[in-house]
Design a protein around this nucleic acid. Structure first.
Length: 188
DNA sequence: GCGACAG
DNA sequence: ATCTTGTCGC
């Protein structure tokens, strides 16, 4: 799942792409658009993007087994990033894959694809800074709801293609930001 | 008071 | 997030 915006932010666009396991074949895609009604405030991303995301999920003809979200899971000041928040509402296992750090600190990231270093907030491990692709900025992985950090990292690595972002998030990203095309929902 | 700050 | 041309590298 990922969110995009249109008209300079006036319209929020939620995209959900369902993939099969194993194989990662695309099974279904849904796009939901609605007026944006909350500003971007670091730490309060869910208030801005969750409404549209939930609407998109309600249009799904299937109930996913695991949800990957573009954003933080528990790697959040109050351990409630958008991935964790979405998991609570959907009552499904979720994990977050962010392209930037919101909070926490970490050492150098290994250069080997698949390797990672913990993201720490004091003594607490809140996520993993993973090298998803050599020579590219790492991604921030953190459990959202109902799964461990180890599992979050495993699923992320298992879904990696040749790009920085794992397939689920990469496809949702493309669908959420791609302009034109007919809006609404659809199946494949 | 001065930075930091997911998307 | 979004806008936006060219450019470097595999």
């Amino acid at each position: 799942m990922d969110i995009g915006f249109e008209d300079g932010g006036a319209i929020t666009r939620a995209a959900v792409v369902v993939l099969a396991w194993p194989g990662l074949a695309v099974l279904e895609e849904v796009v939901h658009r609605e007026p944006t009604r909350f500003p971007y405030v670091p730490g309060l991303l869910a208030f801005r993007e969750l409404p549209a995301a939930l609407a998109a999920f309600s249009r799904l003809s299937r109930r996913p087994d695991l949800v990957m979200v573009d954003g933080q899971g528990i790697a959040h000041p109050r351990r409630l990033g958008i991935a964790a928040h979405l998991g609570l509402w959907l009552d499904l296992p979720t994990l977050g894959i962010a392209k930037k750090r919101l909070c926490g600190r970490h050492g150098e990231v290994p250069d080997t694809r698949g390797d990672w270093t913990p993201l720490l907030d004091g003594d607490e491990v809140i996520g993993a800074v993973l090298r998803s692709r050599v020579g590219v900025k790492p991604v921030y992985v953190s459990p959202g709801h109902r799964l461990s950090l180890a599992s979050a990292v495993e699923w992320t690595v298992a879904c990696l293609g040749r790009t920085k972002l794992p397939e689920p998030t990469r496809l949702a990203d493309r669908l959420a930001s791609r302009r034109g095309r007919k809006s609404g929902s659809g199946q494949t």
